[in-house]
């Protein structure tokens, strides 16, 4: 188990190194000179030179890359050109909106999908299964940001149960903040839970036809007992993969949903930075998103090993 974890950890570090290199190459090398790109075509040469010095562009590219990575490892993401504040600080503030939103949505999605998938699998081919499958078919087809707009229309504008957008800040009270994240989280979670429920159902159905399920029935377990004691844990293995993938989609999808609800999260930050050509901020936020995807995949790998003993002994 320890060896397995270390191996996964090593691959995590390698992935991060390569991903950071790709991002660095695209952002700092592709546009030619980032400083003149950021300042636009009308900039004075001396302003550009000043920015070059400030960004550390006058050192060789390899050294610049190492400085950037080295800085990030120590928590220093550089200084935003437009806002003149440390990027690390800006990201940290926005993270407190984006991360809770993604986790909230993931929890909702799992809470909806598991019962729905298990219910449908246990009633395969019966009206209950057909109803769940029909609903998920529709759920998969709905774009989450449009669904978000419809939620606003119904629950904020017409019913006035929720506010149409904005975020009060955690210091104004936990429940108030949670309430303002509820519609965005539902909008993110429902389409994802449709996918997850389908995966859960088909994974369970696969397991139900396995030989060991027949063995369990031959022991005298009822259909339901066999499903819970032997089916579920085995069915969880493919479901975990999807949950891992979904987290990255929820983070990315959250960026779009934040636009619908005017939430001060990473999405707002990144779109403002793109229009302000603030490459330093874009670079760091993208790196952070990619880092979280890779980290979640690492955690999923560890979860695999917890569920499947075959992975633990294999190295």
């Amino acid at each position: 188990m320890l060896r397995y974890s270390l191996k996964r950890l090593a691959s995590l570090v390698i992935s991060l190194a390569i991903a950071s290199l790709v991002i660095f190459l695209v952002i700092e090398v592709a546009p030619g000179d980032p400083a003149s790109y950021m300042l636009g075509i009308n900039a004075q040469p001396e302003t550009v030179a000043a920015l070059r010095a400030e960004l550390g562009l006058d050192v060789p590219k390899a050294e610049r890359y190492l400085n950037w990575v080295g800085g990030m490892v120590q928590g220093d993401f550089g200084t935003s050109y437009t806002y003149r504040t440390p990027v690390g600080q800006m990201i940290a503030d926005r993270m407190w909106v984006s991360l809770p939103l993604a986790l909230y949505a993931l929890t909702l999605s799992t809470l909806i999908a598991f019962p729905a998938g298990i219910y449908a699998a246990a009633r395969r081919g019966k009206p209950g299964d057909m109803a769940v499958m029909g609903a998920t078919q529709l759920g998969v087809a709905v774009p989450n940001f449009w669904f978000a707009m419809m939620l606003v229309l119904v629950f904020a504008i017409n019913l006035r149960w929720f506010s149409a957008g904005g975020f009060p800040g955690w210091d104004k009270g936990f429940w108030l903040s949670m309430k303002s994240l509820t519609l965005p989280a539902i909008a993110l979670a429902l389409p994802q839970s449709a996918i997850l429920a389908r995966v859960m159902r088909s994974s369970l159905l696969d397991i139900l036809s396995e030989d060991f399920m027949r063995t369990a029935r031959a022991k005298g377990l009822s259909r339901r007992q066999a499903l819970w004691r032997h089916g579920l844990r085995n069915a969880l293995i493919p479901v975990l993969t999807i949950i891992g993938l979904q987290f990255s989609f929820l983070l990315a999808g959250g960026i779009i949903i934040e636009q619908v609800f005017f939430l001060p999260g990473l999405g707002r930050l990144i779109f403002q930075s793109i229009s302000a050509r603030d490459l330093i901020v874009v670079e760091s936020v993208v790196m952070l998103l990619v880092f979280s995807v890779i980290l979640v995949n690492f955690l999923v790998d560890l979860a695999y090993a917890a569920v499947d003993p075959r992975l633990r002994s294999r190295t």
Binding site: D211, R214, T215, A218, K219, G220, R223, H230, V307
Partner: peptide
């Protein structure tokens, strides 16, 4: 069905063809 469950494994035991897949791997 509940009566049958009480008999399976208790009064009647069964051994299958494929030992590689007849046991729960986890």
């Amino acid at each position: 069905e509940p009566q049958l469950c009480a008999i399976r494994g208790n009064d009647i035991g069964m051994v299958f063809q494929e030992p590689m897949t007849a046991l729960n791997p986890v």
